[in-house]
Design a protein around this nucleic acid. Structure first.
Lengths: 178, 178
DNA sequence: TTGACAAGACCGTCCAGACGGTACAGTAAG
DNA sequence: CTTACTGTACCGTCTGGACGGTCTTGTCAA
């Protein structure tokens, strides 16, 4: 679409995520993001005219990426696999990444709590879809919530569970999901 | 120990939680808390000499309250009930409260991410204890994580699950916990 | 009983710094 | 000529916190 010289947009987005993760959600200032991205503040404001637009882009990119990953996992998955199982596997992989991938969310809701609404409605959508595809509601609830718990641990960079325990959890969930 | 004239300390703490919930984590300023608590800024600073101390008090009170609730639930609980089942019931009750009880956490970690460490170590402690008391590790993992998911939904004020679904989830977990 | 006084609890104002955002002149590439 | 920036200077606002003053309460000697 844009960016002939270089892809500043993505650099900036990545820099914002890094700054949020490393220096904390409250320290996500435009100056910090700009210098981290190797871009001047003027350049940042050229790409994202306001801080809110930056946050919005962060949210939208995140949601789009997850949606695409889910879609391709669904088509590329094992044929006999249930949609719930696919969801569990994909989410577990995401949570297994060493870096908390979305701690910028904290910055976003600190900036304006309304940034949560698109995320919430996306989650709701995914859950409703899963509900239509899963015969056993109890199994769905348990698995979905446990995955949500895993996501939360990743978000808060919690080390309550060991790697082995995480693996055992996932395999148990897959067993429950059938 | 303190507060001869009135109990400003608790009023302030409650006000801080209210402000964080209603106006968002980023808007938790001393001025806002003071006016909400019906106290001047000077008075607030008298009780909590710095913003960090306020946050710390919020964290400590929260942890202490949960610990006490857990302890009394353990002693007052049904005799045949497993510790895991007690934990599930208590946490579910907490999550059932209409107001997100701890959204000030976002404010705290925006202020300084280190406020998470006492919370994390507390969680770890609780989990380790549960691990020593629960024979079935798989059941523990699934239940603990699902509860964590429930907590996260409450924290983010998410409405993905209906009340009925939450109830079904809890009963399923209790079934798994045995 | 009373008056002096100390301490505790709180008020209201002020300030330095940080932040988001604007403005604008310059420049290198296509 | 346009796009995509860089760099600098600047403004208005908000925030944490310091500070000095004020009102209330308890204590205790006379």
């Amino acid at each position: 679409m844009k960016a002939r010289r270089a892809n500043s947009r993505e650099k900036i987005l990545a820099a914002a995520a890094d700054v949020a993760r490393e220096t904390g959600p409250g320290s996500l200032s435009l100056d910090a993001v700009a210098s981290r991205a190797g871009v001047s503040k003027g350049g940042l404001l050229y790409n994202f005219p306001t801080k809110a637009k930056l946050m919005q882009a962060l949210v939208e990119d995140y949601l789009r990426a997850f949606e695409q990953a889910l879609e391709s996992a669904r088509t590329a998955g094992v044929i006999g696999e249930s949609p719930l199982a696919t969801y569990i596997k994909l989410s577990a992989e995401h949570a297994e990444e060493s870096k908390p991938s979305a701690s910028w969310i904290f910055s976003a809701i600190a900036e304006d709590p309304d940034f949560l609404t698109p995320i919430k409605s996306f989650r709701r959508q995914v859950f409703e879809r899963l509900k239509g595809e899963t015969p056993d509601l109890k199994a769905l609830l348990v698995c979905y919530l446990a995955i949500e718990g895993l996501r939360s641990m990743n978000l808060f960079d919690s080390d309550v569970l060991s790697r082995d325990e995480r693996r055992l959890l996932v395999s148990s969930l897959l067993e429950i999901a059938g």
